[in-house]
Design a protein around this nucleic acid. Structure first.
Lengths: 143, 143
DNA sequence: AATATTTAAGAGTTTTACATCTTTAATAGC
DNA sequence: GCTATTAAAGATGTAAAACTCTTAAATATT
């Protein structure tokens, strides 16, 4: 469905939100170990999140990643766009170049609905919301 | 969402069903050109469909692919399983190994629903149904 | 039987996603 | 200032998906 990178990015971002409500920093090592994500690969992904303003970071001893003003209110869709690009929800499910509402492939109408549902979820849910869910034990980021 | 291979396989199979209601054969060249699918790559995919009994084929002049008893009644899900494997709907949307109903990732419950909907569509709809839709002009396989 | 045609099969090649390794830059603590 | 620590950056490696090329096998036509 989505790339592994998206899963890594989302879980890592939620993890940082959980740790650092109050400016506390979270190191790459910590995230990577806690969530079982390849460390150096995660480094690249975190760079992107920082570059896009989803998170902030500082180098050096006791450095790491931390939340900024918009972090908690970031919709999951923003993460998806960063990791998987903008066109995920625009491409035909059968890969037909010319598929659209007026010239639909045989699955077009069905999947337009499913995609809209997903899009709604990804737009309404934010990193902060997910972090809260995980904190109160109703869902989990790892083991 | 799904692999390109799935789109190719499904469109090609529906194309064959459309052409050959009555034992008529459809050549690789014809499918490949009509649907704008790489010829040799499509060859591989068609082999799989034949091996799995979705279609039949013969070599030689005026050879090609043609429907058998079960072709029209084949659910789309059968094609998906052949091209994309069995586990597509079982893996966590965030790639978390330990995600399940009792230990859900933050998106688990939402996406279980979406997947069930897709699964239902892919189970109910058959190659024959799609071919009929395309024949009566309500949907399209290519340009 | 010979030939032409068409799928089957196998062995590449290319591209993309995923992952690692190494070096550089920034910064805190001494 | 020196050292240790940490993220940033760049180069490299690996695996899977997507695609191509060549040869073999089957069969219809002559």
């Amino acid at each position: 469905m989505f790339s592994k990178t998206f899963g890594y990015a989302l879980r890592a971002a939620v993890f940082v939100v959980m740790q650092g409500k109050s400016g506390k920093k979270t190191g790459l090592q910590d995230i990577s170990q806690s969530l079982d994500i390849p460390r150096h690969f995660l480094g690249k992904i975190m760079q992107d999140l920082v570059r896009q303003g989803i998170l902030d970071s500082t180098k050096g001893p006791s450095g790491g990643f931390f939340v900024n003003d918009r972090t908690s209110e970031t919709p999951l869709l923003d993460i998806l766009k960063i990791t998987d690009g903008n066109s995920i929800f625009n491409e035909c499910v059968l890969g037909s170049k010319l598929c659209n509402n007026l010239h639909p492939c045989p699955l077009h109408h069905d999947f337009v609905v499913y995609r809209d549902e997903m899009l709604q979820t990804l737009t309404m849910k934010t990193l902060g919301l997910l972090a809260a869910e995980v904190k109160d034990g109703s869902s989990f980021l790892a083991r």
